[in-house]
Design a protein around this nucleic acid. Structure first.
Lengths: 242, 242
DNA sequence: AAGTGGTCTAGACCACCAC
DNA sequence: TGGTGGTCTAGACCACTTG
């Protein structure tokens, strides 16, 4: 009745290699952020070819146990960050609370016009001014996320003049006295493509999680729309409902 | 001498093949649930080998545009189902509301004892009786999800005797007068492994989304713990917060 | 300069599914 | 039974990172 686990000689070779690597990770002989031996060396160790070794590595990557840094090698994934997108308190504060180190870099700030897609999401009119802020965030030195933040310059005058390499939430509170009220969060797993893949420094096609949030103030005025592109193994989403 | 554009080399072949297939999907000449030509034929059409054709197909799979049915072929993904895990009304009702057809199959029902992991999640004591219900759900004939549902037999006497091929939410309301109150939802992207991969009929390593929910009644008593293993391209999560 | 992962070729055999 | 995807071999060259 119960499904049988893979028999040791019946399973495909790449899954047997996967199992051996997974054991090393679980027993701790491969610690988080450790770099693995090269694909060629792994292939030799397991008596197979690079293609098969790569299948095993890719399987562990899909499971969120390994990640790769472009052309630098394969590394053991650290634990997932617990992320509560429904909460509006400072992201950087609770990264710190989980004993991790957050870095934020502003990629660019671009005044632009509201597109039809943005208009539908925000309630602004097509052509209205809007400011696009792109940031990259790293946890413990690893880039795990890039975000497009669309800001409403009518609600946030001179927003483009501030420093964004810090908590946006605190900036909005201190400078604009905004109480964010989340309205709608959407998310789905998908592969990272350009330009996000390059921004994070991963191969096109790396598994990701797309998260978008639209926030308004207490009066219901549109404040900011957030699009986040996460590495799929970097986070675990948590939502509490009462 | 190779021509260069802005210092960048041409895109890899498998991404150019991907682009051409993606165009056909977008322009509608490949409709949802259409089966693609075989890998060997695609390789020939694009003047390359199966390995490269498979790279292109796998890329589109990771993006959620194509899916495969084990050893049957590649198909165009239908639109994602919008899923609101914070709501406790009938899942089947809102699948229907989106114009899709839901089927539910009970895989097995197993009385068992509360494990340490379950105890931590539910608040029950290790060794307490608990009932495991495993179900598979299909949308428009495609299996997209298997779930492990752990039911509290103390709160739900004789629960194992009912028919589960219908809405569990309605069953709990009608037979046990339960008002579910969600407490905590967690989810993260990961690859499907056995036994879920076989239950859904996909290859080990297919991208998935793991969702778990713990529900209690109005008095805070544990009612059921839900573990869902979704195909990653089948859904879009939506959470509204006020 | 050496080594890494990224991409690609041209084959092969197997398990499984539809006809 | 013929065709499919799943797995695997044994090489190759290229782009990029690192020492």
């Amino acid at each position: 009745m119960q499904e049988r686990e893979c028999g040791e000689s019946a399973a495909p070779l790449y899954l047997r290699v996967r199992d051996q690597l997974a054991s090393k990770i679980e027993e701790g002989s491969l610690a988080p952020n450790t770099r693995l031996p090269s694909e060629r060396i792994l292939a030799e160790e397991y008596g197979t070819t690079r293609v098969t070794a790569r299948l095993a590595l890719a399987q562990l990557e899909r499971e969120g146990r390994l990640f790769r840094s472009n052309r630098r090698g394969w590394f053991v994934s650290p634990p997932r960050l617990i992320y509560k997108p429904a909460h509006d308190y400072s992201f950087s504060d609770y990264v710190t609370a989980q004993g991790r180190v957050l870095e934020t870099e502003t990629l660019d700030v671009t005044p632009m016009e509201t597109s039809p897609w943005l208009a539908a999401k925000t309630g602004l009119s097509v052509g209205d001014p809007i400011v696009l802020l792109r940031r990259r965030r790293q946890i413990d030195g690893r880039p795990v996320l890039v975000e497009n933040i669309y800001l409403n310059p009518e609600r946030l005058p001179n927003i483009a003049t501030y420093d964004f390499n810090r908590s946006l939430w605190k900036l909005l509170r201190e400078k604009y006295d905004v109480e964010l009220r989340q309205k709608r969060i959407e998310m789905y797993p998908t592969a990272l493509v350009e330009p996000q893949a390059s921004d994070i420094g991963v191969t096109v096609g790396t598994a990701g999680l797309y998260v978008t949030r639209c926030s308004r103030d207490a009066e219901g005025r549109f404040v900011e729309l957030d699009e986040e592109f996460w590495l799929h193994d970097a986070l675990s989403i948590q939502v509490d409902v009462d």
